[in-house]
Computed example of a mutant assay.
Amino acid sequence: MSIDVKAYIESGDLHRFYTCAQWLRLRAEVLAEDKYECQFCKDKGIYMRATIVHHINHVRRHPELALSKYYIDDNGDRKRQLVSCCDKCHEEQHPERMKQNKKRAPITKEQW
């Protein structure tokens, strides 16, 4: 059964994609292939346990790659699309999320 990632994005329910059986199987497969090691930390010579599988080409911009382990870049080279990573590295890959999570300074003294 094929899932329609574009429909999930359009409906604002991308969570359905991340809980579907196809994604969960692929996610487990990628984590196992990477031996549950964060690939970004590993590139720096550090060992950190991976808990997340990151889409290099973000799902919202490239839904056609949502269930692909690899993609072909502009030079025709085969690259990893799904990469195991730790929480910290995943947050670094999504700087747009960090802006959302920052607390705002109170506008007035009453807002604390």
Rank of each mutant, 00 (worst) to 15 (best):
Y70V: 01
Y70E: 09
Y70H: 10
Y70R: 12
Y70T: 08
Y71C: 01
Y71I: 00
Y71Q: 01
Y71F: 13
Y71P: 00
Y71M: 03
Y71T: 00
I72V: 12
I72L: 12
D73V: 02
D73A: 07
D73L: 02
D73C: 11
D74Q: 07
D74I: 02
N75W: 02
G76Q: 09
G76F: 11
D77V: 05
D77I: 03
D77M: 12
R78L: 10
K79N: 05
K79V: 00
R80Q: 01
R80I: 01
Q81C: 10
Q81P: 00
L82Y: 07
L82N: 00
L82W: 11
L82T: 00
L82D: 03
V83E: 08
V83D: 01
V83Q: 02
V83T: 03
V83N: 01
S84F: 02
S84M: 04
C85S: 03
C85W: 05
C85F: 07
C85L: 03
C86E: 05
C86D: 09
C86M: 11
C86G: 00
D87W: 05
D87P: 09
D87R: 04
D87I: 06
D87T: 05
D87L: 11
K88H: 11
K88Q: 09
K88S: 03
K88F: 12
K88G: 00
K88R: 14
C89D: 02
C89I: 08
C89P: 01
H90S: 02
H90A: 03
H90D: 12
H90W: 10
H90F: 08
E91V: 04
E92I: 09
E92L: 10
Q93F: 13
Q93L: 10
Q93W: 06
H94I: 03
H94T: 06
H94F: 10
H94Q: 07
P95V: 02
P95A: 03
E96F: 15
E96R: 09
E96I: 15
R97L: 14
R97N: 14
R97M: 15
R97K: 11
M98A: 14
M98I: 13
M98W: 15
M98N: 12
M98G: 01
Q100M: 14
Q100D: 14
Q100K: 14
Q100S: 10
Q100G: 15
Q100V: 15
N101G: 07
N101M: 09
N101F: 07
K102V: 06
K102H: 13
K103I: 15
K103M: 15
K103P: 09
K103R: 15
R104I: 02
R104K: 11
A105D: 14
A105F: 15
A105C: 08
A105Q: 14
A105L: 09
P106G: 10
P106D: 09
P106M: 10
P106Q: 06
P106F: 08
I107V: 12
I107T: 11
I107F: 12
T108Q: 06
T108V: 11
T108K: 14
T108E: 09
K109C: 01
K109V: 06
K109F: 05
K109I: 07
